[in-house]
Amino acid sequence: MVINPIKDGIVLDHIKAGNAMELYNILNLGELECSVAIIKNADSVKMGKKDVLKIDQIIDIDFNVLAIVDPGITVNIIRDGKLIKRTHLELPSVVKNVLKCQNPRCITATEQELTHIFKLTDPENRVYRCIYCETKAKNYSGNN
């Protein structure tokens, strides 16, 4: 399968196989007018199978969101057909308004203008907790 190289854009590589569509939706890539390639189950030496997203435009991406969904993703920025920056994601220690607390007893459930802040409390198991009520964050999904 051949997909033309992009000139100016972003390649999200090493996405865990099966996660590409979720990321496509979370990043609202469907709203872009440029070409977006979703490559599923590509062969990978490192991962066996992987997904890749190619976006034919430089857009602002919230790396915190990416890291929470899949910290193994590599972000490649392409300009004039050349790789100018490669970023390996790290789990952010604090995320604001990325995750939403699901605890109905949390103050954020009644005071909805409050910033939802989560802290990384267990990096090994990727556990984030609400700073207000300490409830563990559920897995990220775009509308949570």
Binding site: R105, C106, I107, E111, C130, I131, Y132, C133, T135
Partner: peptide, 27 residues
């Protein structure tokens, strides 16, 4: 004291004087 968990922390983030949590829900 507040029935919602985390309310005293919200208070502390907005206060110019010390806040003591006298109980926040079941937290």
């Amino acid at each position: 004291r507040h029935p919602k968990e985390g309310a005293p922390l919200v208070g502390a983030m907005n206060s110019t004087v010390p806040i003591i949590n006298a109980g926040d829900g079941g937290h």
